[in-house]
């Protein structure tokens, strides 16, 4: 795999924890891979399974879902629903033989700038290893 390959990763961040965490990472001038493209949603519960699927089918090399840690949700329980939704997607990918690593869920709190940097960097590396999403070339979708 070409080492210069730069994956395209979409990250959906919840407004209260993960996005704040990501901001903090920025303020702290941490190194975040440029492959990450963040999309802010109010709650991770808003991350519709279709967002993930659409991003994936449109050729995103990876899709990250991020929200507050369980119990910390700004809206009390949104992230539990998110978790279930992720399990659903994960299971679907597995059952249908799709590359399940292309999607992932992480809890990142507002103070966890380090964690944010870590997971994004790690995930980017992982995706790099995986290579481009074959879907992005597929015509007959």
């Amino acid at each position: 795999m070409n080492s210069k390959y730069k994956p395209n990763i979409i990250a959906f961040l919840c407004n209260w924890c993960s996005y704040t965490g990501a901001d903090l990472a920025g303020t702290a001038r941490m190194k975040i891979p440029s492959s990450i493209k963040t999309i802010r949603v109010m709650c991770s519960g808003r991350i519709d399974a279709l967002f993930v699927l659409k991003a994936f089918l449109k050729g995103a090399d990876g899709v990250m879902m991020m929200g507050c840690h369980p119990g910390d949700c700004h809206y009390q329980k949104g992230n539990y629903n998110t978790r279930r939704r992720y399990v659903l997607l994960d299971n679907l990918f597995k059952t249908l033989g799709l590359e399940k690593k292309r999607i992932g869920l992480w809890w990142v709190s507002a103070s966890e700038a380090n964690r944010y940097a870590k997971v994004t960097n790690e995930y980017t590396e992982e995706i790099k290893k995986l290579g481009p999403n074959p879907t992005s070339e597929e015509i007959f979708l």
């Binding site: 399974a49 279709l50 699927l53 050729g59 659903l88 679907l92 070339e137 015509i139």
Partner: peptide, 25 residues
């Protein structure tokens, strides 16, 4: 531009996969 070709109407698989997320359970 990216694919050099495109099936239309598109979104075929998105429909089936999406529908699966909605009701397969």
């Amino acid at each position: 531009k990216r694919k050099g070709g495109l099936k239309v109407p598109s979104g075929n698989l998105l429909f089936h996969l999406g529908r699966m997320t909605h009701m397969a359970v």
